[in-house]
Amino acid sequence: MGNNHDENHAHHITPLETYLKVAGALFALTFLTVIAHHFNNQLGVLAAPIAFLIATVKAVLVMLWFMHLKYDSVMNRVIFGAGFFFLALLLFFSGLDIWTRVAEFSTL
């Protein structure tokens, strides 16, 4: 069969070293978020954005290397990205509804 060549480059094998580095970064970021937590009073309103920024960086590391999205097809990246897009849409319109209608006219 003439398709043998497709298989050779299609499956990228991430080196062991890369996995260990990514895990190391994830552990370090977990410690960082807990350290930041101890300065919550000093950080004030920035405390929550910093915690979620760290979480987002961790999530991106997991998605790109552990879930192999870095070497996956564009289609699969678009599919997964669509999930987050529609989640953002849900948050946006729910928020809009709560703060322009419910908060204004309801006793909720």
Binding site: S73, I79, F80, G83, L87, L90, L91
Partner: peptide, 20 residues
């Protein structure tokens, strides 16, 4: 794999509802 990723979208949306 594409099927798995479509399934993952439903996971994101299921938990996403709770997050929202």
């Amino acid at each position: 794999k594409e099927g798995i990723w479509l399934f993952m979208v439903t996971e994101i949306l299921m938990f996403g509802g709770l997050f929202v």
